[in-house]
Amino acid sequence: MRQLTAAFEWQSRAVVGRHLRVYLKNWHTSFLPPVLEPITLLLAFGLGLGAYMARGIEWHGRDVGYMDYVAPGMLAYATFMTAVFQSLFGAFIRMRYQRTWEGQLTTQIDLRHVVWGEILWAALLTTSYVAIVSLVLSACQALGLIHLDLGVLPVVIPIVFVSACAFSALGLCFTALVPTIDHMNLPIFLVVLPMGFVSATYFPLGHPVMAAISTVNPLYHLAEAVRGLLLGAGGGVHFAGLAILVSAMLAVLVPLDMRLLRKRVLGD
């Protein structure tokens, strides 16, 4: 239980504070990716691929414009990718190359706080990215490119934060396991990208096998829940699926992360 309650202790906040200070020092370069990425994806998927789908696509029995379909998926995808990549590469670099963790562990910070600090920071960063993507979507809405109920975005933000915590815990698990940064390709190609593809973020899952697999994919439930909110269709079953999967991930992966990282960092 202490492994989970450590999230609320001051040491975890101190670790987040450290990461925040670094981010604010480099804000001008850190700010660009979340702005450029959705614009690029909207252009590629929305205007590019969407041009071939002028009639839109069918989503839960209703016709939806492809841009309207893809925009909520983009929020979910940004949540997943930002959280996972931050806890994969960012955390790995701090653990292995910068030895930031070792320095922190010589203080009152314990490993469980380092782990929660990484998870909470990845979630915070992800939430800020999604907020920026939301601003870009608002601009697209103002230009008439998309037609979504953006008034529900304040509801989406906390969902994004909690989901990002779970995705980050997944990323940290790989951080604990991969021997070098070159081996990051393995979890990326074997787990992260397949999860991204089987998620209904950018295209609907028509094949029954894909649809069946997607039911255990938290990203799928996140995408569908956010889409349901932004398209004014609710999304209750996906909220339930997301809540169950995210809770299970946090309950299992956070203690596992701590166990694996204790072995790796402390040799214990």
């Binding site: 200070r21 910068q98 320095g103 922190q104 010589t106």
Partner: peptide
């Protein structure tokens, strides 16, 4: 091994280390 925080200056290293104590 040197485990100072490479993202910060010498002064900031001392300041950030102080934030890890209560």
């Amino acid at each position: 091994e040197d485990t100072f925080d490479g993202d910060f200056t010498v002064r900031e290293n001392l300041t950030i280390a102080a934030s890890y104590f209560r």
